[in-house]
Design a protein around this nucleic acid. Structure first.
Lengths: 191, 191
DNA sequence: GAAGATTGATGGGTCAATCTTG
DNA sequence: CAAGATTGACCCATCAATCTTC
């Protein structure tokens, strides 16, 4: 679409700077955040910035090349990875971290575009499956090339193998619910 | 507000898994993302998950305790850090990574709540300053305590000093436009 | 005409209430 | 009644067009 770099998400200084903090938080309350010193906050801010930076670019790349949003892309990925290319609405909602209603509407749109279909669950008439269509798979194939290239360019290629491992370690400490599996101990075969 | 942990942002597997990739991307195109192997992607996903996890909690904390959104909080922080507690609309928009129109509406709301005011610029009648009110400063003081405690609990306290430095290094490599200043070389005084 | 800011139309999300089926 | 899914009302962001002032 447009080549302009337009902000997509407000993130910058969502954290109060330590300077601000000293000015604003009474000294006796500072114990509540004992580690939030100047440069710790700088580290945290760098995290927010990096995230915003990368996500903005990825979203743009996808939209520009395939008119697919990241949310849509995420759904396509979840479906293609699922057995029989289908998932219950609720499961899908959990997988892409969307509310039920949010997912309903997203699937509505995707169905309109022919990327997915809804299938009743024969064993439980309350439930519905969202199933990937041929068009959906094709769209994913298209988008994946662009998207992966983006992730590679913006993130992976900028870090060494060891740094990537380091990042994984750090993130695991921040998010206790570590993703699916542990990082394979020595799956270093870069391709 | 509600204590429920509800998803706020779709992020999970926004990146195609390497398994998917092999199934979906023709072998001769894989060169375009040569480093996007299985565990590199795992590292990238951990980044997305950690971000979603933390932001969700921070947003909830703020909303629950002070009915302030992260975007609003961000504006308050930018203003309190600015000279004379005021900033031009455009500057503010850039600072919080919002579009001009997005900021106009956000400031509208904040003004309605009495957190900020608009001041004409005497030197350029086209421009407006957004200026922090006493109520805005008070709200910030309140919110900052909660927010900083959250950042501390969810991120800072989980990482050692060295790990925090490491994170800063990694993020700087991902986002070339490193924040304001470099990390002070030896500002290790944790309080 | 260009820059600062706002407005109108629209996309995409949330919660709370609802309908249907187990 | 509980669970799965949807709908209605609303919030918050974007872009494109507009108005005002330089």
């Amino acid at each position: 679409m447009s080549a302009t770099i337009e902000p997509a998400e407000p993130v910058t200084g969502r954290v109060i700077a330590a300077a601000t903090r000293r000015a604003v938080v009474p000294a006796d309350e500072r114990r509540s955040a004992p580690r939030a010193g100047d440069w710790q906050i700088a580290a945290w801010r760098s995290f927010l910035r990096a995230h915003a930076h990368v996500m903005r670019r990825l979203e743009q790349d996808l939209q520009a090349n395939h008119k697919v949003s990241l949310a849509t892309y995420d759904v396509l990925v979840q479906l293609v990875e699922a057995p029989e290319h289908r998932l219950r609405m609720s499961e899908l909602a959990d997988a892409v971290l969307l509310s039920r209603s949010g997912l309903t509407r997203l699937v509505d749109r995707m169905q309109r575009e022919g990327l997915v279909e809804r299938q009743p669950d024969p064993y439980d008439a309350r439930g519905l499956f969202t199933v990937l269509t041929a068009a959906g798979l094709a769209a994913l194939k298209d988008a994946a090339v662009v998207h992966l290239a983006g992730v590679d360019e913006l993130v992976l290629s900028r870090l060494t193998e060891g740094e990537l491992r380091g990042m994984y370690e750090l993130m695991s400490k921040i998010d206790p619910l570590v993703p699916e599996a542990q990082l394979p101990p020595d799956a270093c075969g870069i391709e």
